[in-house]
Write a protein that binds this DNA or RNA. Sequence first.
DNA 1: TTGAAAGCGTTACCAA
DNA 2: TTGGTAACGCTTTCAA
Lengths: 341, 341
Amino acid sequence: MPKSDIYEVAREAGVSISTVSRAFTRPELVSAKTRAKVLDVADRLDFNISRSATALKSGRTNRVAMLMNEEITSWFNTQTFACIESVMHPAGYDISLFQHIDTEANRHEFFSNLPIRRNVDAVFVASFAIDPHEVEQLKRIHVPIIGINTPSSEGFDATISIDDEQGMFTAAQHLINLGHQRIVYPCSEAAMLDSSIDARARGFIRACENAQQGKRPDLDWQVLSVPRGPEFADSALSALLALPEFPDAICCQMDMMAIPLVLKLGRYGHRAPRDYSIIGFDDSPYADTINLTTMRQDPYAMGRAAAVKALKLIEGKPLETPHEVVEAQLVLRGTDAPRDE
Amino acid sequence: MPKSDIYEVAREAGVSISTVSRAFTRPELVSAKTRAKVLDVADRLDFNISRSATALKSGRTNRVAMLMNEEITSWFNTQTFACIESVMHPAGYDISLFQHIDTEANRHEFFSNLPIRRNVDAVFVASFAIDPHEVEQLKRIHVPIIGINTPSSEGFDATISIDDEQGMFTAAQHLINLGHQRIVYPCSEAAMLDSSIDARARGFIRACENAQQGKRPDLDWQVLSVPRGPEFADSALSALLALPEFPDAICCQMDMMAIPLVLKLGRYGHRAPRDYSIIGFDDSPYADTINLTTMRQDPYAMGRAAAVKALKLIEGKPLETPHEVVEAQLVLRGTDAPRDE
DNA sequence: TTGAAAGCGTTACCAA
DNA sequence: TTGGTAACGCTTTCAA
């Protein structure tokens, strides 16, 4: 078993363990020659600095936690994780992932046991709401807490969020401006506290009420709520087809709702934009392929921004703008058209 | 700063640090009363056992590495990561992710510096080929190496792979049996060494040559290779449409090729299964939505199996079946039909 | 059931 | 530029 320790390397290289350590982590303090010698011996003996020991000594853990709703396999979570990883990994951090912090049981388990206490240098909360009590609990780990798409920034050291309400307001407005009469907003029922979704619904409602009270008193709109779960798109499809009159515009909570609808409504003779306009939200995979008009959000940029903030906070540096809100962008493609008179 | 150490907890609880330690990690060795007391004090003082110290003391790192081609955002990588995580996390391991071990530069950097040496308890290699020299390098970290969809099991302590060659053979065979005459296999050019993809092409070719030499001497088939990159599906689309005669069957390297093709070919008047049959590979998102006939592989099950193997190997237990190969399943849906005479 | 103490592999201070 | 040494926070053996 050729796993050697720092003493062996020191002996073999004819130096002290201090020098071995420095050759790895403070190369500038060691003469080029000594350093080369040490690294050469170390490589031969399959030696490398132990991160655990470094962590212990330094008081840092070199690890951050990332809390998420549901699975990392969802589009937003994957994107966010990927770019936080791409910033944190080069900086020497591992990400300890906590999925499914959504059910009451899991939340309670997590926030009362607080397994990450004293074991991470920062915490990311990705795209879900935690209640004030939970934030309090989280604060007890005494490290920076960074939120991504959290409905509130209360209690967080930094947040970056998309403006869901305004984004969906814009989407609905766009549909209204196109002259559509009967607009439906299909959405899967909000998970407990998941107000990123709620905010979108609020934006839709506000746009419709605005229009109704203004120059479009005739506007006919409704929120079509279907149960959460893997079947939500099919549920929305059925609900839509069962409506007394098919809408001329559909404003979707997210692309994962819009894409199946566009695809499957076609089979029932409803073609966008010929028969109705439809708009999505997210610009997630295949939105471009099916030419879906949508509101784009950029989780990659958000994740990166969050990671950069975290790194600064870990270093104890102050943040110029701890809390940021970014706007979703309307991406016009081919599933919307003015209503023909 | 109420971050307290084990001594403070011990003092406050009126016990020794040994007892505090045991209260957390060996509760059965501590009287219920003492344990309750200790945990109570610990919670009040925001104390928790340090994973770094535990790791250092134990000689374990409580961390595994996962190496992958390209980004974690690809469907297969995300799925695999998610389920390895779901097994390793509860077992107390973090996953240190190394993305983009694909370019020559990154590979060299990784395999010669070997940053994970002495810093992980196992290594997962997800879905890409590493050359014999690289395997040798990897072995120098002296921990179990587990491969997922690696073309060879040479040098690995355990592997689980899908039989790409056989899977694509089955897919092509199916199309041939349906009576199709002109079969095209569009594929993006293999990344260097990425023979999971090559294996699929080989399966396609074998099925076609078999048929040709047997009862289908008239079979007309070809491999349509397009450059890698984000545009591969559009490149394949153009290439297909530029063919002297449009094929009556398309056998796709993967669903991410098949799905855009089905969607976009429709705009050019080619409808599956009316005008041609098409089959995918993977059963990735939206395959079911568009009713794509495809070969299903189950990265979730594979990841789980790989993680279980890793855990056993870390414990030093022997594996009954270190190397496993699973078959892809033909999922018949709606994009294939017998050729009408 | 509990306590004392050694040691895991580093880093950083102080000295040389 | 390099070496000696204490200390980081835990686990575990041995003793009580």
